[in-house]
């Protein structure tokens, strides 16, 4: 593993304890930015990754449908992520974007031959690339605009990215240590 960096993950205290006992579980679903995986704020556009993870934990606590907090006690976990360069797709740099663009080109070229037009989501394409063995993806990094509590309450929808996140697809392999670095309570 020739790349190593730290990431921060915000979640409820209950989930944090479970993670420490039995490791992370993948977030799965079509709305995941970089596909199925465990998500971390990592240094990039912002270096304040602990603060971002804390804001995320607070934002995720609110159940907007039922207007209740799902949890009030939260934690920020700090994990060491290690990966070989050959299994790391960095979408914050030209080399990475070039790969994604080529993947899209080949995909559309093929699917258009039968007159189909698909709606693209980065995460779905990355899931396909990884699970079909097209790319040896273990960790993917990208810049995104993420809405935290303030952005959600005040309807702030910018297009400019505000953080860098990474998704780890196999936490057992690529996360070498995890510890709680901050706890808090939503009042």
């Amino acid at each position: 593993m020739n790349l190593s960096f730290e990431g921060h993950h915000g979640t409820s205290s209950t989930s944090a304890k479970e993670i420490l006992l039995s490791n992370y579980k993948l977030s799965i679903g079509h709305q995941e930015w970089l596909g199925n995986g465990v998500y971390f704020f990592v240094p990039g556009i912002s270096t304040k990754t602990l603060e971002l993870a804390e804001k995320w934990a607070v934002a995720q606590a609110w159940d907007n449908l039922n207007k209740v907090f799902l949890y009030r006690d939260y934690c920020v976990l700090q994990s060491r992520i290690e990966v070989d360069d050959s299994a790391f797709l960095d979408l914050t740099v030209e080399d990475g974007v070039e790969i994604l663009s080529y993947l899209v080109d080949r995909y559309t070229e093929k699917i258009n031959t039968i007159g189909r037009k698909m709606m693209f989501l980065d995460g779905l394409l990355l899931n396909l690339a990884r699970e079909e063995g097209i790319l040896p993806l273990e960790v993917v990094k990208g810049n995104f605009y993420i809405k935290f509590a303030r952005e959600r309450v005040e309807r702030i929808n910018l297009r400019i990215n505000n953080c860098t996140i990474c998704a780890v697809f196999n936490p057992t392999r690529n996360i070498t240590s995890t510890s709680i670095v901050k706890t808090g309570r939503i009042k």
Partner: peptide, 10 residues
């Protein structure tokens, strides 16, 4: 990861 390393696989 660079395109030249994975283009063949894609």
């Amino acid at each position: 990861m660079k395109l030249k390393d994975v283009k063949e696989q894609i």
